[in-house]
Simulated scan of single mutants.
Amino acid sequence: MTSPGGAAGTRTDPTGTPHPDPTWGPLYRAGAWSALLFVLLVLVPVVLVVVAPLPPTRGAALLEYIAQHRVVYLTELVSFVGLAVPAMVVFAAVAVALKGVDQSIAAIGGLFGVASEVIALALGSSPQSLHGGLVVLSNAYRAADATDRPALASAAEALIAATNAVSWAGILTAAAILLLSLPMRRASFFGPVLSTLGVLAGAAGIVSEALRPVIGSGYMLYGLLLPIWFAIVGWKLLHVSTARAS
């Protein structure tokens, strides 16, 4: 049955609690597997940070590091930037699943989430001085003579500063998590625990992304909460996609 005032196709149980529209099952499954891929793409560079030398944060030194550890750097770059793709699918799946609970919040949260990842892909960069343009500068730096290298190092410094500046894409991602987590409390298929975790992660993310240039290691709190939220959301979406419609 359709919930009163709810989205068309939204099912409710005898108590009136809305359930996800079962016709969107393939999207829920795609969101579940995308959430798993997101977590894996987060874990890969984390492991590399532990087992490989930490990249420097200054221009010339970073260009030399990229030249010497190209595979590591490119893997980290592709992982951090590439996770925007599965994140878009997750945000879309969560928004659709919640449309019977709160259409407006679900739509705004989903829009924020998808927009944030599109911006991230367009910028092609992420925190920790990861940017595809630095690979190009590294190639030029190695081929340049001593006269041209200072200019290339200065260009790298400017790109590093821009990469590590406040990211509107990151703020929108955190805002999307916060908004989508609010109606989860009223959705039995997500529940209050995930809702609370998402609100904490979203609030911490907004503060962390806004203060990223000065917050230092405080960013790690958000960095831990983010993949945990995605992992639990993925598990919930997988359960929703496989549950038989009542």
Rank of each mutant, 00 (worst) to 15 (best):
V207Y: 03
H19N: 13
T173M: 05
T75V: 12
A156K: 01
S246Q: 14
G82Y: 09
D102F: 03
T163R: 12
E209Q: 10
V101L: 02
P227R: 13
N164W: 11
R29V: 08
I108A: 06
R70G: 03
L211R: 09
L121G: 01
R29A: 08
V51C: 12
A151P: 00
L238F: 12
P26R: 15
S195F: 10
L77K: 02
L197E: 04
A176G: 04
R185D: 04
A151Y: 13
L200A: 08
G202Q: 01
L98V: 02
A93F: 05
P20T: 11
D13H: 14
F112T: 00
R11Y: 02
L98P: 00
D21E: 14
V96D: 01
G170C: 11
G216C: 08
R186S: 05
A144W: 06
P227Y: 10
G234N: 04
S34R: 05
Y222R: 07
L121W: 07
G124T: 04
G198S: 14
P53M: 13
I171F: 05
A92M: 14
D148P: 00
L211E: 05
I119R: 03
I228W: 06
L182Y: 13
L178I: 05
V39A: 06
G100Y: 02
A32K: 03
V240P: 00
V118K: 05
F80K: 13
S241W: 09
G223A: 14
G191T: 07
V166T: 09
E209C: 01
A140D: 07
R244C: 05
S138H: 05
N164M: 09
G132Q: 11
P192K: 10
T15E: 15
Y65G: 01
G202A: 14
L179Q: 06
V233M: 09
S126R: 03
A174H: 10
A106Q: 01
V85D: 08
Y222S: 02
L63T: 01
T242S: 15
W235R: 09
P22V: 11
L43F: 11
G25N: 15
A245V: 15
G132K: 08
V96G: 00
T163M: 15
R11P: 00
M88V: 07
G205L: 02
V240F: 06
T17V: 14
A243Y: 12
Y28G: 04
P213H: 11
G82A: 10
L130H: 04
S125I: 03
S217W: 12
G59K: 11
P86Y: 10
V233E: 03
S217D: 08
S138L: 04
T163Q: 13
P53K: 14
V72M: 10
E117W: 06
S154Q: 12
P53V: 11
G31K: 03
A203P: 01
G234H: 05
Q128W: 11
I160M: 05
V199L: 12
A143L: 12
S208R: 02
L40H: 08
L182P: 00
V94R: 01
L134V: 08
S138T: 06
G59F: 06
